[in-house]
Amino acid sequence: MKTDFRYMRRKVFGTTMLGLSLLAALAAVSMLFWILGYTFIKGVSAVNFDFFTKLPTPVGVPGGGLANSIVGSIIVVGMAALMAIPVGMATAIYLSEYGRGFFASTVRFVSDVLAGVPAIVAGIVAYALVVTRMHRFSAFSGSVSLALLMLPIIIRSSEEIFRTVPDTLREASFALGVPKWKTILSIVLKTASGGLVTGTILAIARVGGEAAPLLFTSFSNSFWNFNPGQPMATLPVDLFNYSISPYQDWQQKAWAAALVLVGMVLILNISARLYLARKGFKRNG
């Protein structure tokens, strides 16, 4: 009888603990829906057509939008992608196809460590590197800071994807007499393209929502500007400035900006993953 009681106790304790683990998963998922749902409700009531087409108005003047910062975000992130993608891809090719030995493992280690550098530090580096030399805030310096954040993400994800390309494909190509560099360009890159696109989109989504490095690099601007040498408004920075302002109208706009930002980031994320799923490529996380 006594052992039975003991076994019962162990069983009950175990079930309770496993129940708690279910609860933990539920809690995390409901946090996601709480945050997204609240942003959606607050944002939908604040967003309108003007938000996408008009310039911001001064405090107290109703109406206006953040058209310039939506476009500004696309420009700044786009320039960052142009800088980071070629370097990142080439590095990933080197690491996965040629990379053996001390040099490659050093590069791998350094890029893994760079991946953990806080976004705000990337902002400081771009400030010291570009802003202090140009003597003004500029969209270009913002792009530099975002590129610095993107680079290690792209290296890591692309290298992992190149490694999932089976060696038999490479060997088949060598057997046909194709040189290695041509094999890489026409067989490995092509086979990996689905995963590369996904990894790149995820990297763009990851830095696209970042405000910290842009606060003192691309700064902010209430007007249209397409010159990368001048300060440029971006959606995350405007969202931050508006949200901590005391004005009701600006806080409304912050929620609208939040909805647009979350929408863009989630659409990029989900479409990247769906694309990958359709391509039938498995990337271990």
């Binding site: 998963a25 709480w34 931050f240 989630l266 993953r273």
Partner: peptide, 22 residues
Amino acid sequence: VGFLIELLAAIPSLIFGLWGLF
């Protein structure tokens, strides 16, 4: 569930901040 939790990681820090503030 794994996918949803990864989405939680994708939400920009600013959105967490807004939620925390308001």
